[in-house]
Amino acid sequence: MFFILSKTLHFLLMPIIWVIVLLLLAVFLKSIKWRRITLLGALGLLLLFSNPFIASEAWRAWEVEATPVKDVGQYDIAVILTGVTSFRENIPDRIHTTKGADRFLHPLQLYRMDKIDKFLITGGSGFVLKEGIPEAEQIEKILLMAGVAEEDILTESNSRNTRENAINTADYLMQQTQYKNILLVTSAFHMRRAAGCFEKAGVNADGFATDFYSSERRFTPDELFIPSADVFSRWHLLIHEITGFIVYKLLGYC
């Protein structure tokens, strides 16, 4: 039930949905005053959520800072959180990744530098109404194709959210006590919630943030004044994550 509710909330937190609702109210409300207010509200949201500079500043304030690769120590295992692949039934002969692929590409770099010994990939299928190939298995295939030794890849394919990632990983690590130094890898925007969940589950891990959405601060006309449709989707992701963090805090998950 929690998984389904989270997917519903994901839809309701879309800024574009808010704009559409306000525009519909501006059309159908009888009061001229309130029609004007809702129309101005829709225009204000459009300007706010399409501004690249404001979006980047918001991302910079929320994301966990990057750890320089040179400062990363030696770790027995890197726990990689999924959420960066998708299964397409019409193109099943390859693995499809998203921008978040840095979640496994950057640990792969650390592995090649002998900074981590093994991977533990945690994550099942993200579908609500149908079955799919667990994301952990998809990322495992990519790492194998990249030349990672099979014995260096461990997978956990039952988790469907961050809390389950933490609980299932904690259960596994309790049985495999040889892993002392643990590196937690996820997107920079997701690290606050993930780190809180893993700490709550009893996993003592250092964080390594990847997949950054904030950009370098630039005071150029295109950043300051020119609207961007892409910024809407970025705002949706940020609002969803902050809301998820608050909900997890209230429920005692992190």
Results as ranks from 00 to 15, higher is better:
4 I>R: 12
4 I>V: 14
6 S>I: 08
9 L>F: 14
10 H>I: 04
10 H>P: 03
13 L>E: 03
13 L>Q: 02
13 L>R: 02
14 M>P: 08
15 P>F: 03
22 L>H: 04
25 L>C: 14
28 F>R: 07
28 F>W: 13
32 I>R: 15
32 I>V: 15
33 K>W: 11
38 T>R: 00
38 T>Y: 00
41 G>H: 05
43 L>P: 05
44 G>S: 12
45 L>T: 04
46 L>G: 02
46 L>V: 03
56 S>T: 06
60 R>E: 09
61 A>E: 10
62 W>Q: 04
64 V>S: 10
64 V>I: 02
69 V>G: 07
70 K>D: 13
74 Q>D: 13
79 V>D: 08
80 I>M: 06
82 T>G: 08
84 V>Q: 01
86 S>N: 10
87 F>Y: 12
89 E>L: 12
91 I>N: 15
92 P>L: 11
95 I>L: 10
98 T>C: 11
98 T>N: 14
100 G>H: 02
104 F>P: 04
106 H>G: 08
109 Q>V: 14
115 K>P: 01
115 K>A: 02
120 L>D: 01
123 G>T: 04
123 G>R: 02
125 S>D: 13
127 F>N: 11
129 L>A: 13
131 E>R: 12
132 G>L: 08
132 G>Q: 06
137 E>C: 05
137 E>D: 08
142 I>F: 07
142 I>V: 07
144 L>H: 01
145 M>C: 10
148 V>T: 06
149 A>C: 03
152 D>M: 01
153 I>D: 05
156 E>Y: 00
158 N>C: 09
158 N>L: 13
159 S>A: 10
159 S>F: 05
160 R>M: 08
162 T>S: 09
164 E>C: 01
165 N>E: 05
166 A>N: 02
168 N>G: 05
171 D>T: 12
174 M>S: 12
176 Q>C: 07
178 Q>R: 10
178 Q>A: 11
179 Y>K: 02
181 N>S: 13
183 L>G: 06
184 L>H: 03
188 A>E: 01
188 A>P: 00
193 R>G: 00
195 A>Q: 09
197 C>V: 03
201 A>T: 01
207 G>I: 10
208 F>D: 02
212 F>R: 01
217 R>D: 11
217 R>N: 09
218 R>E: 15
220 T>G: 03
221 P>H: 12
226 I>H: 12
234 R>K: 15
236 H>I: 01
237 L>V: 11
245 F>D: 09
248 Y>Q: 01
251 L>W: 08
252 G>I: 09
